[in-house]
Design a protein around this nucleic acid. Structure first.
Lengths: 136, 136, 136, 136
DNA sequence: GTGGTCTAGACCACG
DNA sequence: GTGGTCTAGACCACA
């Protein structure tokens, strides 16, 4: 059936660059096993028209992930998931996510939020829904 | 003694725009009571030479804060702290900081970090040193 | 008894320069007969402390009105109302006021307000309270 | 034919700041339907060279309109007309224009112009030519 | 190509 | 002295 079960979406106008959003979503998809080593990603033009995004933006995202050894390109064939990409993605995501958490906590402390308050805020947030993408 | 007890500093080359850093520091200073309603901020030129930043950059920061009703300008006189600026600043800072925390926690959850692990990460971060500025 | 029955006020933060507001109020006062030829105006420092305005600003206003032959200065005595000042003021005010009316009407027309609508707006405004100063 | 049917012009040296003139003209263009929601405005550089105005000046005008929710920016793409911008513009223009009219009428009354005289003045002004820009 | 940021320096009105 | 405006030109991230 269909080409890919992975759903992509971008938030134009948000503070996060579109190419970063795409990179993160691809990484999340690989980390969670939606793509396996050797799988083919949506072609640049496919992804481009799907998301209404400039092809150059997709190219940039794929290129970045190639540099990170997460993807590789076979000319005339497409962009595929590299060997051990899942490990790389998990590590990359974990690093990013922990860094964001650390920064956010530091901000809270600097703003005068007490440790107890902070723990409550965190606990309160855990229940809410979360989108599988976002940031650097 | 000196003109102002508030200390400003900027990180050139960092990912955060200089004018944003200044806006945040002013907001923190007001939120923490270092400036009161009616106080005059360092003049554009004064701040400019203090931080080795172009006057236009200071002007931009001051204007943004004026739009947020935190500062107001008296022509030929200077820039002063508006009424209720402290409340606005506190709300602004708190909103930003909580939003960042929420996003970071959401990312962690989406990345498969467990609630216990998360709490440990937060607790471990609280001990680290934090600079009293730099958000968004 | 007191020195002057004329009430002055300034709107800092408004779009109209303080010295212009003072000039207009003096002109209105003279045009309406509150000051007669030969009357002494509040001294610069008196006016300055009354309005919490920089003395230079008062000086500038008086100087402008002197150029317009509305006031004249007697060194060591004060600033007094010149001969025929009332006529000059009435003409000056009338000119200014008509110019403003013309501009405002032109704007309305340019904004697509119909002639009937405009006449209604004008009629509706006539009832409201008006402050005896403002402009240019 | 050309890229845009909207004609822009600026009066250097006039009392109205160039960036304000541009803001007003854009607002008039949107209010009159010359731009629709989603339309792209002339790029900063395009507008800049069209009007012989510094790019920074255009940027300032566009940013102000962005704050007013009339425009929004897509990085690397351009500046476009926001949703409901037409309503905002019409309200903004109408408010400004009515305020000016109200102030002008108030001045007239305060200057001793009678209601009949005032109506005659207004009627007499309606005939004159008006440029479709220039407020505040 | 787009806009975002920053610098350097000018001139102005205002106080 | 203050801020407001504008110019000229640079470098950057993004699409």
């Amino acid at each position: 059936m269909g080409k890919s079960e992975v759903k992509y979406c971008v938030d134009f106008g948000g503070p996060i660059a579109v190419f970063v959003q795409i990179e993160n979503q691809v990484q999340f998809a690989i980390a969670s096993g939606k793509y396996k080593t050797g799988d083919t990603l949506p072609s640049v033009r496919e992804m481009s028209s799907m998301l209404n995004v400039n092809p150059n933006t997709i190219t940039k995202a794929y290129r970045d992930l190639e540099v990170m050894k997460i993807l590789y390109t076979r000319r005339g064939v497409g962009v595929m998931v590299a060997d051990r990409a899942d490990k790389i993605c998990r590590a990359s995501i974990l690093g990013m996510v922990k860094r964001h958490l650390r920064d956010a906590v530091a901000e809270c402390i600097a703003s005068g939020i007490s440790a107890e308050e902070l723990q409550k805020l965190v606990a309160g947030t855990i229940g809410a829904g979360c989108l599988p993408y976002q940031p650097d």
